[in-house]
Write a protein that binds this DNA or RNA. Structure first.
Length: 527
DNA sequence: CAGCGCTACCACACCCC
DNA sequence: GGTGTGGTAGCG
């Protein structure tokens, strides 16, 4: 054992010891900094009724959703850019937790580690929200602050006309993440007891009101057609929406398909002309509240100099990631903060937690008073692509979901695979009115009109559940122009649900209703 | 080991004029 | 030239 010298005990008395102490202090400083950098947030205080699990981390969004669904508590999936846990470089990862637990963790992160996004789940009831942005250098004459004020008023007027919902700027949480180069706002509408069915529905509504704005701006703009926003493109989009609307909305809302088809089939009818006139009256009423200059100011130019909307239309897709209050993008320094012009005040008080909770798009409490806004025919727009989970050529087969009549799906699959082993169902459209299912086939082109397979056009089958038959039609332009439709083929009795239930006392009408009611409730409840 | 969901755009095949 | 289909770069 070494003895403690006087110098060592009382501290530095020479240059050597001084250096040593400096070194130790420096090490300590480093340790402190390091600790601060990697500090572990304090545990959330567990209550007896409180959450069982703090959080769980996933590399894949789907795994996170699966886990959240299997738990009994109300959990949410939050995405973040993963440098915040010390690895990866902006790669997205997924956190499953409750809002309360998340806020407790999130509020303790330093500003540069708040890189988080809410995932607005597919099909979930949500608040009306907007991403408003434009490049400042490309639009030096635009006044963003004034544009936001006009835009909010424009949206409020449309809400009143279309849904009889009254609101004002006081109901709009206004968040800002602008820089010198880019004007950027997030608007979140917190209208008491009002929410939208889902964010895709919002997309349809917004698409509609922006299109009306574009049409107006174009007609009152220079007489010549400008690139990007021609009237032609507007009308062709409308046509698309009639023919394709039912495909885009097929899974969740077969009723939409009915009305879309009715719309198309009774064109030229007086009733349709009436509704067209009514629609343009609504549009005129809204537009009439503004001066031409105010409306024109909402159109900006993108980096290619093309005219485009101030409102980003790309944020209404399924499972959209939407940046959280106080978060920034990876590698950027512009967190979302409350804008100076914000007039919304949370019910409790103006504190960060209340703002955070109110800013969550899908944080909508279920209540019987809640009015759920759904899309109507005018809002629907074309949606040609169908989400396929897998990649490559087999995607269409893997991405295909069962129709409400899986037995019919199986029958058709078996049928086509006798001729084409790779044949499959690309998608289906269910028309509950008339009990019709239209199946678009994949890798199956045999047409009864030409008695051979077409070279590049797949065929479709129309299943008539009432008549218990099916027939074939096809995409080939020649067959189409002839209005070709094959003769009827019988559907085997075994594909009908009644075949299974007839002698089964376990199934009766009540059980069926209960099951579908339970499913409906499950769908409407916030996740 | 490790993101997701589009959408605009292009290339190509086939059929029509 | 029009239509349907498939593949991909790139955006939000």
């Amino acid at each position: 054992m070494s003895t403690i010298t006087r110098n060592l005990f009382y501290g530095a008395s020479n240059k050597n010891d001084l250096r040593k102490r400096k070194l130790i202090e420096k090490c300590l400083d480093e340790k402190v900094k390091d600790f601060k950098r990697h500090k572990i947030p304090k545990d959330y205080k567990q209550r007896i009724t409180g959450p069982v699990v703090d959080w769980k981390l996933f590399y894949r969004q789907q795994s996170a959703f699966n886990y959240a669904r299997d738990q009994s508590e109300e959990l949410h999936v939050i995405a973040f850019e993963s440098s915040s846990v010390g690895f990866g470089d902006g790669k997205r990862m997924y956190l499953v937790t409750s809002y309360d637990v998340f806020w407790n963790y999130y509020k303790q992160l330093s500003s540069e580690k708040k890189l988080h996004y809410e995932i607005i789940p597919e099909g979930a009831v949500c608040k009306l929200y907007f991403d408003l942005e434009f490049s400042i250098p490309d639009n030096p004459d635009n006044n963003g602050t004034e544009m936001v004020a006009i835009f909010i008023q424009y949206v409020c007027l449309w809400l009143e006309e279309e849904f009889s919902v009254k609101c004002s700027r006081k109901d709009v949480l206004d968040l800002e993440a602008s820089t010198d180069k880019k004007f950027s706002r997030h608007l979140i509408f917190l209208i008491p007891d009002v929410a939208f069915q889902d964010n895709v529905t919002i997309g349809c509504f917004i698409h509609h009101i922006i299109e009306e704005l574009n049409k107006y701006c174009e007609s009152s703009d220079l007489p010549k057609v400008e690139n990007g926003l021609s009237l032609d493109s507007c009308t062709s989009t409308k046509k698309d929406s009639v023919t394709n609307a039912c495909l885009g909305n097929q899974i969740n809302s077969p009723k939409n398909c009915e009305s879309a088809v009715e719309d198309a089939s009774c064109c030229g009818d007086d009733g349709v002309l009436d509704t067209v006139r009514k629609k343009s009256q609504i549009s005129d009423r809204v537009l009439g509240h503004f001066t031409k200059e105010q409306l024109l100011s909402l159109i900006v130019r993108n980096k290619h100099g093309e005219k485009t909307s101030f409102c980003d239309m790309g944020v209404y897709t399924k499972n959209r990631n939407f940046r959280l209050y106080l978060s920034r993008k990876y590698g950027k320094n512009n967190p979302l903060l409350v804008a100076a012009e914000n007039e919304f005040v949370p019910l409790s008080s103006m504190n960060d937690e209340a703002i955070f909770m109110d800013s969550l798009i899908a944080n909508v409490k279920f209540s019987s008073r809640m009015k759920i806004l759904k899309s109507n025919d005018t809002h629907r727009r074309s949606q040609r692509s169908f989400s396929n989970k897998g990649a490559s050529s087999t995607a269409c087969l893997e991405g295909y979901k069962a129709s409400p009549y899986p037995e019919v799906d199986a029958f058709l699959l078996e049928h086509v695979r006798k001729l084409e082993p790779n044949g499959g169902i690309r998608h289906w459209t269910y028309f509950s009115q008339g009990e019709l299912i239209v199946y678009e086939m994949a890798n199956y082109r045999f047409c009864h009109n030409v008695e051979r397979s077409h070279k590049s056009n797949n065929v479709m089958f129309v299943v008539d559940l009432k008549k218990k038959i099916y027939y074939q039609k096809c995409h080939d332009p020649v067959c189409k122009s002839q209005g070709f439709k094959s003769s009827d083929f019988p559907l085997p009795e075994s594909v009908f649900p009644s075949f299974l239930w007839e002698d089964d006392p376990m199934f009766d009408g009540e059980d069926e209703d209960l099951c579908s009611a339970a499913e409906d409730i499950e769908k409407t409840l916030p996740l």
